[in-house]
Design a protein around this nucleic acid. Structure first.
Lengths: 144, 144
DNA sequence: TATTGTTATACTCTATAACTATA
DNA sequence: TATAGTTATAGAGTATAACAATA
């Protein structure tokens, strides 16, 4: 058991475990009555990158177009987003946030980030720098 | 917009984004007919740490005992786990994997890790070492 | 009384299949 | 024909509330 033939798999398992544990911890920090995971992710994405088509949203979250259609349906039903037309291609639907959607997204995001910010504040500068590098690397991996 | 008053929140947002993106990517790598997220997590945990009570499992995943009860119900219905008694405390239920559960857990885990291992293989030694440190740090954060 | 676990019920999120509308 | 999007239906996962059994 002292060999390292599975060194890569071991690292993979470590990363998978860490990502899963932090993700579930994030999820458990959701407060009563707050938005669900998909809703927050979609609101955040539109907030950051502007109006998006259904296909853009479904690819960003790696879910099926049908799943995303239902997620945005919940958002529009709640008055957080609206459907708009793309003049250049009438098949497309551009989803835009309402003022309520923008406000709720910002509030929920900062609430969910609260516990993480507390932990990050206790780290050393070196640890924070390392984590920033790791986050960039993980984002690159997720996109590849 | 050039200040760094929110440096901590920025790092938090980066980490949150990276974790969410990798997690969703993991989820999307699930193959047809494979186990769901909760099932894999529970099977992996029991496989790694041995028979567990419901409370232990629910705390490990940070879900309610009621949610975990239903998750393990799906596992026992599928013949992947069995309920056992704790002689020292008859309120407790010890969940143990069947041979089928052990085999399926191992197979599904390696399948889900496949794409990550491919990416990790393209990294430099320094990057892998950094990622291992980051994973340890994230696990520590998730537990705190 | 407190702890451990379960069931009932409802919501979010996701998927596949079948469909409409536009390019 | 191909692409963009929707709806119908089903299943996994989660939560709260109410409950039973044991400590």
């Amino acid at each position: 058991m002292s060999g390292n033939a599975n060194a890569s798999s071991d690292l993979g398992a470590q990363v998978r475990s860490a990502v899963g544990r932090v993700y579930r911890r994030f999820r458990s920090e959701r407060v009563d009555g707050a938005l669900g995971d998909s809703a927050v992710t979609v609101l955040t994405f539109i907030h950051k990158y502007g109006p998006q088509t259904l296909t853009q949203l479904s690819e960003a979250d790696r879910v099926s177009p049908a799943s995303m259609s239902q997620s945005v349906n919940r958002l529009t039903s709640a008055g957080l987003a609206v459907r708009g037309s793309d003049p250049s291609d009438r098949r497309k639907v551009l989803f835009t946030l309402t003022p309520e959607g923008e406000a709720l997204a910002a509030a929920d995001i900062s609430q969910r980030n609260a516990w993480l910010d507390e932990r990050l504040a206790t780290l050393t500068d070196d640890e924070r720098a390392m984590l920033a590098e790791a986050a960039a690397l993980l984002n690159r991996i997720a996109d590849s």
